[in-house]
Design a protein around this nucleic acid. Structure first.
Length: 928
RNA sequence: GGGCGCGUAGCUCAGCGGUAGAGCACUACGUUCACACCGUAGGGGUCACAGGUUCGAACCCUGUCGCGCCCACCA
């Protein structure tokens, strides 16, 4: 006996464990492989709505394909998340008032991080399990596993040898709080209220020039003033201390007289040249730009082009350096303190022209949220431009397809304008860069220190050093110093993520073993993966990089499809964030409504190309749907609808059964088609409508007269057919609602295997039955029409009344005869007669093929009935007019497709017939 | 400055060339033995606006007005 209701709280963990222990999530069978690699959540993470959506969709696909017989591998794992994890651990240490990271040293600190990972790193995994994610957990990976770390080293070394990774000194985005370089993508440009300070830089030796201050209509100057300075403007005054020049556009006539001269850089008291360069925009500001090569990306380029000296102003924490070109009073000041000082001092010297309020775009670190400082440092770079070529081609050639398609544009736009990727980070948690510095200043890049050492000895020997010399170098640092010193930095977390689709499958070890022993390696079997499911905010960070690494190292794309799903927003359409306090916790919803309800909601709302505004009411609604299903199963159980292995749908003789099988087939086809094209919402909608609006609302109601009637062949068949359809429903619904369906699967019959690995319905399983469909749909239409008329005429819901089918033709009387009990029960009729004329004063229902009279003379309100019929009549007239207008347009008849014309012709006939009947009914009621 | 997307029932959203839809909310009725997490019936929309293409437009094109998001070096 099924319980009164499904209890997700107790059932879900139990069912999940059963799946896991029986190994149904492992790839199995000879079926075509189907592979998804999970976007690895941060080890520090806990499940948020984005994860819930992302993993629900992946799970829907995996469960669907698994049931279709594919050998499904959903490869799970987590990401070490360099900066995030290091921050978390450091914060914990601070909270416990432990010594800082820098005090305990690298090794001790890393031990702490690993300890933290062991203790708290698994939360997201258990949360994914609560969602029902059918990953093969036996294959769980971590980006800092040994295997994956090997892959990282191998990739780094190979790219280095190919010249695609190099070390370079250039301007980089520097995070002064985290004290590390970050990549362009980790910088968020935000508009803030700032200021625009206009300064005078006096000309050397008191030189003067005529500067135009008024112009006529043609733009020719009409008035001049004598100036002994050049006017520049800046949003970051403290950087002026590092100016190396002032630049104007070569075509800017205003400054032509002073180009080539020098001006005084105030405060720093240096003279800097006034140069020309294409960069300044004569129409913006004064048209003259101060060039601070070491602290601005544009200025850097100008400085490079013009050979302008660079002055580094700040240290790693953005404090003013102790350098001889910086006046003493500013040294050691924080950059924002220095700014205030500089402005005050310029003002004091009478060189401040004005200060404007201005909205400026300011770069912030996405993790630290502090202003990013462009800094001149040595870093490692990946030549992304080279790697991007194959990644672009792969999408052009259709080897990888984006769904929805327009994300292709975003991908191309970024890939075609890609900049070198800075991959070194001045952190400790991550993959340490496999590069060693030799005593000769040379860099040895190798997978292991031994290899690097060998390279070093070979090279040094070739340079003429003897082994003894080399040993002396080793002892150089007071005795036992190492010969080589390893680069301290670690790699950007996304570097290892970029390898995820093949590193998790065993590359590089598995790659070499791929053709051995006739057994296909996992890598060969599951790479390229079938689809990557992710949100658009990660296309650049991750998708693009996997494409680059995959096409380069595997010579093939990492995935055939990229399905980009929506962002989950709150009800008002705002991004959920802790600071806004609008976060809806998926686990809270799971606790309250069950994982199935949340999953179904997310799938049902996952329409392509739109964001999801999640509302709890919707989740509640789908929880109710689960309950509805549960109760339908209970109904089946109570009425002897037991699943029978021997029942084959083609055996069904009863019209009702043929009909529901036919309808189930339509729903199955719709669901499958939608899933195959990633239209999750359509798939969910198709099952939903079938289960609730067809199976529950009609089929189960229509079976009642039979199931509650005497035993007979029809009853037996109906029991079997109904149980069979319920089974099919469980299959169709399983990818979306795995828990409740699996529970019903095992509770409603003795089954050989779990629903999770039961075959998905095949199209041929549902014999089509157009005739049966037509008949039952007619019955449904009639019942609906009667109910509607009853309600409108205020016939008490409980009252059983007779009905007379007036002037029924042969097919109608046959249909009535065949479905007498069904119609009577659902329309609450006590008898159904056939007659040639309608009795006086009856409610007359015009429905396909006839008029159906409810003889309520004396009970009904004649005027109400009149207006009811009139309303229907008017509607009918309107429809006929519309159709008539169309049909009388020769262009329509000529140019519209024949089916459309034909359809309209048929509709016109039907409506005209209906109109005639309504006219007659109106006439009759008026005579009453 | 470029790019993408969105304005459809009170709310959240489907539909994207051929009779305007769902869920929730709302109204009325209902102790029909699966289900009130329910049932039955119902109200509610010039599909942002203006042009155009078409026999036909919520849907395609152009423009306008609102609203998001992404990229970008205007000091």
């Amino acid at each position: 006996m099924l319980d009164k209701a499904f209890d997700p709280q107790t059932a879900e963990p139990r069912l999940y464990e059963a799946w896991e222990t029986s190994g149904v999530f492992k790839p199995s069978g000879a079926g075509e492989p189907f592979t998804i690699v999970i976007p690895p959540p941060n080890v520090t993470g806990s499940l948020h709505m984005g994860h819930a959506l992302n993993n629900t969709l992946q799970d829907v696909l995996c469960r669907f394909e698994r049931m279709r017989g594919r050998s499904v591998l959903w490869q799970p794992g987590t990401d070490h998340a360099g900066i995030a994890t290091q921050m978390v651990v450091e914060r914990e240490m601070a909270k416990r008032q432990e010594p800082r990271r820098t005090e305990i040293g690298r090794e001790k600190f890393l031990e702490k991080v690993w300890a933290w990972k062991a203790e708290s790193g698994g939360t997201i995994i258990s949360q994914l399990k609560r969602l029902g994610a059918s990953c093969d957990w036996s294959r769980e990976r971590f980006t800092m596993d040994e295997g994956l770390s090997n892959a990282v080293r191998k990739v780094f070394v190979q790219l280095y040898r190919e010249g695609l990774i190099y070390r370079d000194k250039r301007l980089v985005n520097w995070d002064p709080k985290l004290v590390t370089a970050i990549s362009d993508l980790e910088v968020e440009n935000t508009e803030v209220s700032g200021h625009f300070w206009h300064f005078k830089y006096p000309l050397e030796g008191g030189a003067t020039y005529q500067f135009p201050i008024a112009h006529d209509e043609d733009g020719n100057p009409t008035e001049w003033e004598t100036r002994d300075y050049i006017s520049i403007a800046t949003t970051r005054p403290e950087t002026m201390l590092g100016d190396g020049a002032v630049a104007v556009h070569p075509s800017d006539k205003r400054y032509a007289p002073i180009v080539g001269k020098k001006c005084l850089l105030p405060l720093a008291d240096r003279y800097i040249p006034i140069i020309t360069d294409e960069y300044p925009d004569p129409d913006f500001g004064s048209g003259a730009v101060k060039i601070t090569g070491a602290h601005d990306f544009n200025d850097y380029k100008v400085a490079q082009r013009n050979n302008i000296k660079l002055y580094i102003l700040m240290d790693e924490r953005a404090r003013m350096l102790d350098a001889d070109y910086i006046p003493e009073k500013y040294r050691g000041l924080d950059r924002f303190e220095a700014r205030k000082q500089v402005v005050a001092d310029i003002d004091a010297r009478g060189l401040l022209i004005k200060v404007e309020d201005k909205k400026i775009m300011q770069p912030f670190g996405d993790r630290s949220n502090v202003v990013i400082e462009p800094m001149l440092t040595d870093q490692w770079y990946v030549d992304a431009e080279q790697l991007a070529k194959k990644a672009i081609d792969a999408v052009l050639d259709g080897k990888t397809k984006f769904t929805p398609e327009n994300w292709t544009k975003t991908y191309f736009q970024w890939m075609r304008n890609i900049e070198p990727w800075c991959v070194s980070r001045q952190l400790w948690w991550g993959h340490q860069i496999p590069a060693w510095y030799g005593p000769d200043g040379h860099i040895y890049v190798a997978e292991t220190e031994e290899d690097a050492m060998k390279d070093a000895i070979i090279r040094l020997t070739a340079e003429g050093y003897s082994l003894e010399d080399i040993n002396n170098m080793r002892r150089h640092e007071g005795g036992e110093g190492p010969l080589l010193v390893r680069d301290e930095d670690v790699l950007d977390t996304w570097f290892s993520s970029a390898l995820w689709p093949f590193s998790t499958l065993g590359w590089p070890e598995d790659a070499s073993a791929s053709s051995q022993g006739g057994k296909q390696s996992l890598l060969a079997k599951h790479y390229p993966t079938n689809v990557l499911v992710t949100a658009h905010d990660i296309i650049f960070f991750w998708v693009a990089r996997m494409m680059m690494m995959g096409t380069h190292f595997m010579k093939d794309v990492p995935f055939k499809d990229v399905y980009i799903h929506a962002l989950v927003l709150d009800e008002k359409g705002q991004k959920m964030s802790k600071s806004k306090g609008n976060v809806i916790d998926p686990l809270t919803l799971i606790d309250k409504y069950g994982a199935d309800a949340l999953r179904f909601t997310l799938a049902a709302m996952a329409a392509q190309g739109r964001n999801i505004r999640l509302s709890e009411a919707r989740v509640e609604g789908y929880r109710n749907f689960g309950t509805k299903l549960w109760n339908a199963a209970r109904f089946c159980e109570m009425n002897g609808c037991v699943f029978d292995e021997g029942f084959k749908p083609a055996m069904a003789k009863e019209t009702l059964n043929q009909w529901i099988i036919h309808e189930a087939g339509k729903a199955a086809a719709e669901t499958m088609g939608a899933l195959e094209s990633y239209r999750f919402n359509d798939a969910a909608g198709a099952v939903y409508r079938f289960v609730w609006n067809v199976f529950c609302d009609w089929h189960l109601e229509l079976t009642k007269p039979i199931l509650m009637g005497p035993d007979c062949a029809a009853k037996t068949e109906t029991q079997q057919a109904t149980a069979w359809v319920l089974s099919e429903i469980l299959k169709l619904l399983h990818p979306f609602m795995p828990f409740v369906t699996e529970e019903l699967w095992r509770e409603t019959a003795a089954r050989p295997k779990a629903l999770a690995v039961t075959s998905w319905p095949a199209p041929g399983d549902f014999p089509a039955a157009e005739k049966a469909a037509e008949e039952i749909n007619w019955v449904i239409g009639l019942i609906t029409a009667i109910r509607s008329a009853r309600a409108e005429m205020n016939v008490p819901a409980g009252a059983k009344i007779p009905m007379i089918a007036v002037g029924a033709d042969a097919s109608v009387s046959l249909a009535i005869d065949a479905n007498r009990d069904l119609i009577a029960r659902l329309a609450r009729l006590d008898e159904i007669h056939l007659a040639s004329t309608s009795p006086k004063g009856a409610v007359q229902i015009v429905h396909e093929g006839g008029v159906y009279a409810l003889p309520l003379a004396g009970v009904i309100d004649i005027d109400a009935e009149k207006s009811r019929l009139k309303k229907e009549f008017d509607k009918c007239v309107k429809e006929i007019e519309t159709i008539y207008k169309k049909m009388s347009n020769p262009n329509f008849v000529d140019k519209a497709p024949v089916e459309v014309v034909e359809e309209n012709r048929e509709r016109r006939i039907a409506f005209v017939e209906r109109q005639e009947k309504l006219t007659a009914a109106l006439k009759q009621i008026s005579e009453a």
